[in-house]
Structure formats: C-alpha cells, structure tokens
Design a protein around this nucleic acid. Structure first.
Length: 573
DNA sequence: GCCGTTTTCGGCCCGACTGTTTTCAGTCG
C-alpha cells in the first residue's frame, strides 16, 4: 500500500470527524498525521515490517496513529473510518471538496435537508430550501450552486506547466501598470514548484490598492470575481483555476511572501518556533508584543527567529526548519548548473525533429553535450528501433557530431526493460553506445516483488547507465508501479547507475520525496527532459524544481558536470 | 489525538472576507 493511500484515509477520517462535530484538535491531529505520512520518503509498509515502534518517531504520529497505521498496512482496512462512513456517507464526504462548503454547513445540510450527495444538494438549492436554513441565505445558496458547477467540471488540479503559463501571463498583464506597482511576485504552491496546484497566488505591493484590484478583476481571461477587497481579491479564470491577489505594504513584503508561499505546514512550524521565543509571526511581520522586529525581507524574518533563509521549494515541513536552525541546509542545484540533456527522441522514432535540430536547440541553451536516445523495438507504439536500425542510426548521430563542433552528441538509446528484466537490445549493440538508458514501458501492474526483481535484473546488465522515469507514473493518469525503492536505489548506487528525474510535466519522475530518498541512499541523479521536440528542452526547469524539492545539490546531479568529468562518472565500474 | 528546557495535563497558528448577523460564525489559505 502506498503512503498516499494511508494519508488519504486519515484525511477522510478528519473530514468525517469534523462533520460529526468531533473536537477540532483531534481533527487536526488526523490532518497532521496525513500530512506527515504523505511527506515521508520511506514506505510505511516497510517501516511496519522492520520495526513498527519506529512509527512513533515520525512527527504527528503518536500511540494511536501508530496503531492505526499498523492496522491499515496489515489488513488494508481502517475500521475507525469504515465505522464513520456508516454515519457520514462517502458521497457526502466528497462534498467537502466543494469550494465554500465546510463541515458546519455540510452537517446542517445533511441533518436538516437530508443531503447525501452532490445531486441532493443541487436539488435542494434549486428548490430554494437551502436559503431557509439558519445561518444560510439567498447568497449562500447561489454560491453553493455555482461552486457545485465548478466542482463537477474541474475535478483534479492543474499541472505545473499549465499553471506556470497562466501565472506568467497574468503577472505580465499586472506589471503593465508599472507606475502603480512597487513589487510583484509569485507565491503559493506554484512558487514552491509543487507538481500540481489548486490555485495561483500572487503578491503585490501597489501604491493604489483599489486600482490594482480593479485591473486584476478586469483581466481578460477572468470569468468571474469570487471575492474583492483592498487587501485580497480572488478571481476565477476561464480555464477553471482560481487566482488570488494579495496587496501588502512594501515594508511587509518579506513576511507576506513567507506567509503566502507557504506551505501551511511550514508556516505553522515557524510560528510555533516564534511563539516559543515569545514572538509572533503573521503576514505583517515578526512581533515582540507590538514591536515589529522584521518584515521587509524574507531573510530577515527567518533570521529574527534564529533560522537561515530557506528556499521556497523546501518549505514543506520535511525537516527544512530543523536543518535551517542547525545551519545545515543544502545549497540547491540550479537551472544554470545543468550542462547537458541526456534523454531525447528524434524523427527516427516518435520525435518531431531531426538529430541536428535537437542538437542546435540544445546549443542555444548553452549545453555542452546531449544524448540521442531512441526507443527500442518492444515499444512498438513509438516506432522503436531494432538492433540493426539502431546501428544505422548511430552512424547518423556520428555524422552530426562531427559537423557540430560546439556540442558533443552521445550515441544513446532508451532501451526497453522487458518483463523478465532483460534489455531489448543485444549486448553487442549496447556496447556500441555511449550511454544506455533503461526504462519500463509495459506490464505496469506486476506485483511489487516481481517488479523489484525486474529492475534489479536490468541493473545487472553491465552496459546500463541510467534508469529513466523510475516509477512510471503519469500525473493524474497512472499510478507508479510498485517496487522496493530502497532495494533498487541501493543497487543503483552499488552498480554506479544513475536515476533519472524526468522533467516532462506529466512525469516529474523521480518525484521530490524520492529524490530525497535517492540522495540519502547515495544514488546519483540525472535530470533529463525526454524531449520529443526542440521546444520541450525548456522543460528542464521543471526537473530542476523537482530536484530542488528533493533537496538535491549540484554535486548530486551528474549532468551538472562538464563533458569529460561526466563521461568519467557515468562509466560503469 | 499529539506533545513536552514551565512535561503527563492542558494547551494546540493567524488573519481576511463573506454573509449572516447586530457582534459573529464559517470558510479559506
């Protein structure tokens, strides 16, 4: 069982408890436990197997949660939740995701009107029965009806690339009013580089608050205004995503940025630290009594509570606060550190451009080396090449390599890892290659044991250099296949095989917590775009962000090395 | 339900906006 599934059970439990009117701190304890579990890089299943008593050392997991986790891992079920779901139906629980409806409203709707699902609620609104309830009114009823429409339309969250595009264009639009704007910055989960985002948060320091808020609600892509005030305004875009704009004094911009970049868990953690030092942190600054100790720059706010500056990508309460207090924060890898891209396709298989076009685009980005890595024959849908065709293709690569002096083009292939763990090209073909990437493209639902064996066996092949998109997930579409991460990562370290962080916006694979795990184990990482067209080389940024979220430093990432060093390090020992 | 240099009880982050109220509860981030 995935940690995310256990986290989801705790979240559902928290929702259900909240609706039944349980003590709000108990509710919070379940949410906190869910968050901790979700953030964990180690698999709970393995912790339970090795030493279940260790569970309690995880923040937010005490005696009770430990028992719950053991129960869930061992039986696959959570009795407490099942019992709750008899009182609060699952469909009713789902309505917690409808914007504007919380536990109190939901309880009233259920108890007074017998609402059990989205359909019931829609009907009750249309019959104007909701407005008659105490604490509700005509406006609330309309709001719920509206939100229900959105809820049905936009299940799921927006991916990083799409949200980034929206954020960039709206910020560009706001920035046109130069005279009014002192500062304008992206905040929220998008600034932290989370793989999907629920909304876009932007922070502004404007001279004229009314004017900037008016400009914001006038944004051409805005479908409607959700809330409008002098300090905070929210709009909904035609694409279905919400954008929040907060206006704040330039003097308070640093503390406000910290607040709006989040994450929530990170903020709660630093506020607790402030409190223990008899200080208080809000978006307006760090305060001792009424005295403002710091607020203008983020760095100063952290300093005021004894912490070093923490990069936004790390602010997930995954140990960064502790590291910052000890001065042990990593110095994260940056986009400009990347010197080459080792995974791309051309027209020879399912790509859109030629070898030379890809190479020239890479040169424009300032890369010193790339690898051309076509699919192999087992991946028929992508037009994979057989041994003979690969050999022929290598000659083409060599020709372009000779022609372009400023960049090294490595002869590679993305070789399919077959069901039994063997590679899809003969050893004598692999021997001709400068770099061999192995990847799983089929039979995703093998058992954990079988998949682990498959990967371990592939790594026994002495020509293999990289494992591409190691977990196989597609964000919002396909779950990762099951395997023992620790065993595979350990073998990667031992055999000097690098793990890929695939920068494609649908993959981001390895993901953040797995990057962190790989680093802790000591396996090396390569960040690649898996480009199928020249424009996709730009995706490198998403890979770097993911690596940063996994605490990776320049030294952890092999393609930050110059060509000679890279070739030395990638060689099998 | 968790947690602990005021530790086994008694706390648990902070503020804005909305819609319903007539001083505030609910929701959100």
């Amino acid at each position: 069982m995935e940690n995310a599934e256990i986290a989801r059970m705790f979240e559902r439990t928290a929702d259900a408890l909240e609706i039944t009117g349980e003590n709000r701190f108990k509710v919070r304890a379940y949410r906190q436990a869910a968050l901790s579990v979700r953030n964990l890089s180690e698999m709970l299943e393995h912790v339970v197997e090795d030493d279940p008593k260790k569970l309690k050392s995880i923040a937010g997991i005490g005696e009770g949660m430990q028992e719950h986790i053991i129960e869930i891992v061992k039986t696959g079920k959570f009795k407490k939740l099942d019992k709750l779901l008899k009182k609060v139906s699952p469909k009713l629980l789902d309505l917690m995701d409808v914007s504007g409806i919380g536990p109190k409203h939901l309880k009233a709707l259920h108890d007074e009107l017998g609402v059990n699902n989205a359909g019931d609620l829609e009907e009750a609104c249309k019959k104007h029965r909701v407005r008659e309830l105490e604490g509700f009114g005509e406006k609330t009823e309309n709001k719920i009806l509206d939100a229900l429409g959105e809820y049905k339309r936009s299940e799921g969250r927006m991916k990083l690339d799409e949200a980034t595009a929206h954020a960039n264009s709206i910020m560009e639009y706001l920035n046109k009013d130069k005279k009014n704007i002192k500062r304008l910055e992206l905040a929220g989960s998008l600034r932290r580089g989370q793989e999907t985002v629920g909304d876009i948060d932007i922070l502004v320091a404007a001279k004229d608050a009314d004017k900037i808020m008016k400009k914001f609600t006038d944004y051409p892509e805005a479908k409607k205004t959700i809330a409008k005030g002098k300090t905070k305004t929210s709009i909904l875009l035609n694409s279905g995503i919400q954008v929040d704009l907060r206006n704040i004094d330039e003097e308070r911009f640093g503390s406000a940025l910290i607040y709006f970049i989040g994450s929530k868990a990170h903020n709660i953690h630093i506020r607790k630290i402030a409190k223990s030092k008899n200080l208080k942190i809000s978006e307006y600054g760090v305060f001792k009594g009424k005295k403002n100790k710091a607020s203008r720059r983020q760095k100063d706010v952290y300093k005021a509570i004894g912490l070093k500056y923490i990069e936004p990508e790390m602010r997930e309460d995954r140990g960064e606060v502790e590291a910052a207090s000890k001065g042990k924060l990593p110095s994260l890898v940056e986009l400009k550190d990347i010197k080459g891209d080792l995974h791309m396709h051309t027209k020879a298989t399912d790509g859109a451009n030629t070898i030379e076009e890809m190479a020239r685009a890479a040169m424009k980005r300032g890369y010193k080396y790339i690898a051309i890595t076509e699919h192999t024959k087992a991946v028929r849908v992508a037009g994979g090449l057989n041994d003979k065709e690969i050999s022929k293709h290598l000659k083409k690569i060599a020709r372009v390599n000779k022609k372009l002096k400023k960049i090294k083009i490595l002869k590679g292939a993305e070789v399919d890892i077959k069901e039994d763990g063997s590679l899809d090209l003969a050893d004598k073909t692999l021997k001709e290659l400068d770099i061999v990437i192995g990847a799983v493209h089929s039979k995703f639902n093998m058992s954990e044991k079988e998949m682990t064996q498959r990967l371990l066996r592939a790594m026994d092949n002495k020509y293999l250099n990289i494992i591409a998109h190691p977990t196989g997930r597609l964000i919002g579409k396909r779950k990762p296949y099951k395997f023992d991460y620790e065993k595979v990562f350990k073998k990667a370290r031992k055999n000097n095989i690098a793990l890929e962080v695939n920068a494609h916006e649908d993959r981001l694979d390895l993901k953040d917590v797995h990057c962190k795990l790989a680093k802790e184990i000591g396996a090396k990482i390569i960040i690649s775009t898996d480009s199928h067209a020249t424009a996709q080389l730009n995706n490198m940024n998403y890979g770097v962000i993911t690596a940063r979220r996994g605490w990776l430093e320049k030294k952890d990432v092999l393609n930050t090395l110059n060509y000679k060093e890279f070739m030395k390090k990638i060689k099998r020992k």
